[in-house]
Amino acid sequence: MTETPRRSVKSRLAAPAALVGAVAIFGLVAFSSGPASADTTTTTTGPTPTPYGVGSSGNGAAGTTGSTVPGAQPGTVQQTPTAISAVPSPAAAAKANAPANETGIYYTELPSSFIAPGQALFAANCSSCHGAEANGKAGVAPNLQGLGAGTVDFWVSTGRMPLANTSVQAARKPPRFNRIQTLEIAAWVQSLTPGQGTKVPVVHTAGADLENGNTLFTLNCAACHTISGAGDALAEGAYAPGLHLASPTQVVEAIRSGPGNMPRFAPGNITNTEARDIAAYVTGVLQHPNNSGGVGLGGIGPVGEGFVGLLLGVGILMLFCFWIGDRS
């Protein structure tokens, strides 16, 4: 009707508009996929902390032996070449198996002192389904004999075992056991069938060929795990898990043992060097993506982008229309 009430409506609208803007910016930040690497030129893998490595296990024994246990930080391994405990020294193993070490991966034999405590842990936590001799129970749990320590280490260290529920696929969760306990269980299962199955790898990602890892990941892994490693749903309730928590050891163990629906890649398909390159690419580039150009929007591609474009882009502009236009 007159000027005064219209103007007051506009000034009243300013506060909600500012609020919506603040919420929008907050949402934009919340969409972020994680730490963004600011440097566009150096995406080499330094020693990357493994989420479930020894350092984070909180076990006292792990503190003393941690640096020599497979799956620990590769940088730490190199800094302390002399072994303190019963765990075999990687440096000694490297001397014994020099050509293998050039690949960045060698497979360790777990000490025999691990077997007895491993059997106790297995009997208490695993045998109710897998049986006292780890030979499985028909229709309940698979036979573990012959799968090797690396397979067991993968399932237990990623928290998939012990199983949370009997859904289609075991879900990743915080592990029940610390690094030493996990390897003890693995050592006992390995001792049932010596020399068979996948051994526990020790992976040095420093000096890996990221370009090669990129190529191999795109060729072999992206079809399920997606090109950004975010993972996605597969048929019949199965899914390719996201790789953002995987450690280099777990990546190599998965490649070698083929957990669940994943194919198993033998050294004839993917050599040790190539497996190391893939592990370095996953833990170095995919877990720390170069998110130049702003927040990463979850790495799920145009779905997130469409929401932002429509809700923030068109939405904010519509609010401006509403602000400067007449509303009667």
Binding site: N290, N291, G293, G294, V295, G296, L297, V308
Partner: peptide, 12 residues
Amino acid sequence: LGGFAQINPIWQ
């Protein structure tokens, strides 16, 4: 948006 929200990171 162009400066703060990533879209189509083709290098990945």
